[in-house]
């Protein structure tokens, strides 16, 4: 069943066309990522799907509830993690969680139990009484995510939740996103970090200038560019000693030697790399370093838009 069905959404702000005919579906219990540079329209889509903004055209259904006809139904199944730290910073983590739990309709012992569970989940039980304003950026982000999980939503939107935080906190957040999926939640995740979309997503939609320029699984997307894997090696001998032999190895499309590095273009690095090691051993040459660069979403974005993702 599709948890999220988006059908031909449009939204303009004056002359600026923020979203232009966006459609996609996300299956229940999957992670669907919207990948694109800043200003691509990701947050506007989240705002429309959260019923904060009314689309100029089109509709969407969240767990079967129309954002136009039944916004309260949408809100009842939804948890939203905004891009900003949308918390009351003068209140403690527990006070914030309790307040937001009440806003999500939780009361009494259920509320208290869920607050305790979520504080445990985000690893802030020990700091629960501290004012959020005194927390580090990563801790704030964790609380920001935690309050959206209090009512166990069926669908959760996460709008660039890892912006501006340290690598360790980022790792924790990415792990928690996968954990949410494993609990059966549907996650709509926006990011401009290609690696995050690649690591987390079951399906990805690449956005640019308010439009989805491509969508599918990671594998489907990279097929669009049809690039070969690039294997860069160094060996303890002159490159010329292996060039001719390696050219003949099955799966090697091209090989070149430059500045002490050998560059091999292959259809599948997983198949070719063992063959290269075997060949090197038979030639009595030792491979001293290997770097594999698979075709990625950055390349796809570049291919489709003519610009780098971070431009």
């Amino acid at each position: 069943m599709d948890a999220i069905e988006v059908n031909d959404l449009y939204k303009s702000f004056g002359d600026v066309k923020a979203v232009q005919g966006v459609s996609f579906t996300a299956e229940q219990g999957t992670i669907f990522s919207l990948l694109g540079p800043n200003g691509a329209g990701k947050t506007t889509i989240i705002a429309m799907l959260s019923t904060l903004l009314r689309p100029d055209q089109g509709d969407a259904k969240i767990m079967g509830y129309s954002i136009l006809e039944n916004p309260m139904g949408v809100k009842s199944v939804l948890g939203v993690v905004p891009q900003e730290i949308a918390l009351y910073e003068d209140l403690s983590a527990r006070e914030n969680s309790t307040f937001w739990g009440k806003m999500y309709g939780l009361r009494g012992s259920i509320l208290k139990a869920r607050v305790d569970e979520v504080l445990e989940m985000i690893g802030l039980t020990d700091r629960a009484k501290g004012a959020v304003s005194k927390f580090s950026g990563g801790m704030k982000r964790r609380v920001n995510i935690g309050v959206a999980l209090l009512h166990k939503p069926q669908v959760i939107y996460m709008d660039e939740p890892t912006v501006g935080i340290d690598p360790q906190s980022r790792r924790n957040i990415l792990d928690s996103v996968v954990a949410l999926k494993n609990q059966g939640m549907t996650v709509l995740y926006t990011t401009h970090y290609m690696e995050e979309a690649q690591e987390l997503s079951d399906k990805i939609a690449i956005m640019d200038f308010g439009k989805i320029v491509a969508s599918g699984t990671h594998a489907e997307l990279v097929k669009i560019v049809g690039q070969l894997d690039r294997i860069t090696l160094t060996i303890n001998a002159e490159g010329s000693q292996v060039l001719e032999t390696w050219k003949a190895i099955s799966g090697v499309a091209q090989i070149s030697s430059e500045n002490g590095f050998l560059t091999v273009l292959a259809e599948d690095s997983n198949l070719v790399l063992p063959r290269l090691f075997d060949s090197a051993a038979s030639l009595n040459v030792r491979i001293t370093s290997v770097n594999i660069l698979e075709p990625n979403l950055e390349a796809v974005f570049l291919h489709l838009t003519g610009r780098a993702l971070r431009d």
Binding site: K75, V80, P82, E84, L87, Y88, W100, G105
Partner: peptide
């Protein structure tokens, strides 16, 4: 003012309030 600036108000709008 702070509720609006911190976007907590926007977040409130995503609840059934």
């Amino acid at each position: 003012v702070n509720e609006r600036k911190s976007r907590s108000l926007q977040r409130l709008f995503t609840t059934a309030t």
